[in-house]
Structures are given as C-alpha cells and as structure tokens.
C-alpha cells in the first residue's frame, strides 16, 4: 500500500468517534479494486433506480432537467465513472490521483490535472489545478445513506486541490466542470461561476486567489 501524504482527523458518524483518514497519492491497485468492488455495485443500483423513476414519469415531463433532478435524489450521477481507466491514464508529471482512506476503505477519490490553464485569466496564460473528477464513497452521500459515515470529504478534497495549487505557485487557482447536483456546493465555497458550459452541458467554476485563500482559511 502507498504511504500517506497527509492525515486528517474526521468524525465517523457510524461509530460516533473521530477517525484518522490518510491521504494517499496515486493509490495502488488494491484501492482502485476496492472502489470497483465496493462503490460500483451500490452506485449502479442507485442509477438503476433512478432510471426506473425517470421512466415512470409521464412522457411530457421527461427532459434533461428532470433526469438531473432524479439523479440527484438517488445520489449516483457518477455511476458511469471508471476509476480503473482514469488511473491508467495518469501522466506522471501532469496528473495526480488522491484517495482518502480509513484503514483500507477508500472514502473519497480525486483526479487532478496540473497541466491546465485558467479560463478566467487568459493573459498572461495562467496555470491552474484542474479537478477532473471528485467523488466520495456512496456511504458518505446523504442521498444514499441516511446517516453518512463521514461528512465534508468533498470539502477536504477541494482543500487539497487548492493547497496543491498554492504549493505549485498557481495562487490557489483551481477549476472544474461541475455536475448539476454539485453546482450549489461550489458556489457556496466561493468558486466563481464563469458562465462557461462544456460540450456535456456542465458549468465551469474556478477559484480565484482571494476566494481560494478564504476557502482554505474557513
């Protein structure tokens, strides 16, 4: 197993006690296999339920907005993400994958691209950390488990992305395309809604330096 890059103390609501979460950089096979074995079946089941629920809607109510809303209710809009493939696509200097691990249980995963550029500040060309993918384990999602094991892991992961941006002298600048269900979260933490939308209809958010530092401080 990998050595940890950092350790966080986070409350475990299942056992009602603090728990140590290790941050693992570029997690090895065992962790990715864990995600495939433990996360995927739950997420696929939630997605199947979401599809059934969507199909139960009268035809005139079926549209992208309704589908997004239903996916949000069932908590698995990322069920189709293949973390094994993502790990295989890592470029050593440009990409990094991070896992938050409690003992051997992967509680959150994030994939970063450090070769990206700001879409807010184009002159001079400005490097940013781009958060390609960020997900927490299904049992840490309130939509899936009534009492999530851990809360706030998305915030911790985003904080790690901002910290790396600062370490890489990118002034805390981070960008990401948000799933519709997460747009409110990124707005609340201070990321700028740029108004840009990609080919998958996902909104682009970016942390500017001041907001990034405030987010870390809070």
């Amino acid at each position: 197993m990998n050595s940890s890059a950092a350790v966080y103390s986070v409350h475990n609501y299942e056992i009602d006690a603090p728990c140590k979460l290790e941050l693992i950089e570029n997690p090895k096979d065992e962790y990715i296999a864990f995600v495939k074995q433990e996360w995927s079946p739950i997420l696929q089941e939630c997605r199947a339920r979401a599809i059934l629920s969507y199909r139960a809607l009268p035809k005139e109510y079926r549209n992208n907005e309704a589908w997004q809303e239903i996916q949000s209710q069932y908590g698995a809009p990322d069920a189709h993400w293949d973390w094994t493939k993502k790990r295989e696509s890592i470029l050593e200097a440009s990409h990094r994958m991070y896992a938050l691990v409690a003992r051997d249980s992967v509680e959150a995963l994030m994939y970063l691209d450090l070769s990206a550029y700001s879409l807010v500040r184009k002159k001079p060309v400005t490097n940013i950390v781009y958060v390609d993918y960020l997900a927490v384990a299904p049992w840490n999602r309130a939509a899936i488990q009534q009492r999530p094991r851990f809360k706030g892991l998305g915030t911790i992961m985003l904080g790690i992305a901002v910290s790396i941006s600062l370490e890489e002298e990118m002034d805390g600048r981070c960008g990401l395309h948000s799933l519709p269900q997460s747009e409110g979260f990124y707005t609340r933490v201070g990321m700028k809604d740029t108004g840009l939308i990609d080919e998958h209809n996902l909104k682009y958010f970016e942390f500017e330096p001041e907001a990034a530092r405030k987010f870390l401080k809070d």
């Binding site: 200097a93 890489e168 002298e169």
Partner: peptide, 23 residues
C-alpha cells in the same frame, strides 16, 4: 518573472506541458 513564479515552478510546468503534448 512574467508568470510570477519561481524558475523551478516554470520548469515543472514546462515538463507537464511537454509530457501531455508528447503523449
């Protein structure tokens, strides 16, 4: 100077750019 970064940061970024384009 233009990027407001150290020379190390510039070279690391150049490596990332070269790596991704090369692939």
């Amino acid at each position: 100077e233009n990027k407001g970064q150290t020379k190390s940061a510039v070279l690391r970024q150049a490596l990332r750019l070269y790596e991704s384009i090369d692939l």
